[in-house]
């Protein structure tokens, strides 16, 4: 479903070339639930943005649902759902309900399918209480639920989330996690998420990838991850060790 082959993206910052991502290769099959870890500035968001066509890779090959995201961006948009935890993709001044209606029309979602899908999402995400409010008036938790619904209205095959639980309280987090798990298991939607919250990884992801310095530092199951550091008992300890050793070898 998602395929990266030696993909790279570099930026020119004051005549110096900075490689945000380099030679990144991985494949994610349909129906997988993959979590992506990495320290700040490791290249996670750049990778996500290459997957949805926002950034054009400067080297290598990217395929999502068989399409080159940067060349077939608008075609791909109908098959992929994207959520940015740090910023909303909804229309700030429009009521949530109007944002949804707009998305229905933008994506050409059939009215009947839209109705049943929206009812289902309203039910599972509990959107009913605030659907009439403008997005700018929503709390972070409400906004995130709205963003999730918006990303799923057109029934995408792939859902990509960049830090979906950032800044949420424990109850909101649990709600979002439960929703994502059911989405993956019941509807078979492929999910790729980046996070700093190890709870997301523990509770959701069967497969973990660790990106550091723009490269893949680890790719395997949660058990594999724990096995990389035998004496350590918690995932926090394991990940902290991986982050710091990554820094040392890079120096």
């Amino acid at each position: 479903m998602i395929e990266l082959d030696r993909a790279g993206r570099s930026f020119k910052v004051r005549r110096e070339v900075v490689h945000a991502v380099r030679d990144l290769s991985f494949t994610i099959a349909a129906g997988e639930f993959v979590g992506c870890l990495g320290p700040n500035g490791a290249g996670k968001s750049t990778t996500i943005k290459m997957l949805c066509g926002i950034l054009t890779p400067t080297s290598g090959r990217v395929r999502v649902a068989g399409l080159d995201p940067s060349r077939r961006r608008t075609t791909l948009a109908r098959r992929i759902g994207v959520v940015f935890g740090q910023r909303t993709t909804l229309w700030w001044d429009l009521p949530l309900r109007d944002s949804f209606e707009l998305i229905r029309l933008l994506y050409n979602v059939d009215r009947v399918a839209y109705r049943s899908r929206l009812d289902e999402l309203t039910e599972t995400l509990g959107l009913g209480d605030f659907a009439a409010k403008p997005v700018r008036q929503l709390s972070l938790g409400q906004r995130m639920r709205g963003d999730l619904a918006a990303a799923l209205l057109h029934a995408p095959d792939v859902l990509v989330l960049d830090e979906p639980t950032i800044g949420l309280d424990v109850v909101s987090k649990a709600g979002i996690r439960d929703f994502l798990r059911r989405l993956n298991s019941e509807q078979g939607t492929t999910v790729l998420l980046t996070t700093h919250d190890l709870g997301d990884i523990e509770r959701l992801c069967r497969r973990v990838m660790l990106i550091d310095h723009g490269r893949l530092a680890f790719d395997g199951t949660l058990d594999d991850l724990m096995a990389t550091a035998p004496g350590r008992s918690t995932i926090e300890e394991v990940v902290t060790r991986l982050y710091t050793t990554g820094r040392e070898t890079a120096r």
Binding site: K49, C52, G53, I54, R73, T74, T75, A77, R78, I80, V82, F84, Q86, R87, T88, T89, L106, Y107, N108
Partner: peptide, 14 residues
């Protein structure tokens, strides 16, 4: 600057 251009790029419209 506000990052809202990213949101425009994920829609199936120019």
């Amino acid at each position: 600057k506000a990052g809202t251009f990213d949101a425009m790029l994920i829609r199936p419209v120019s």
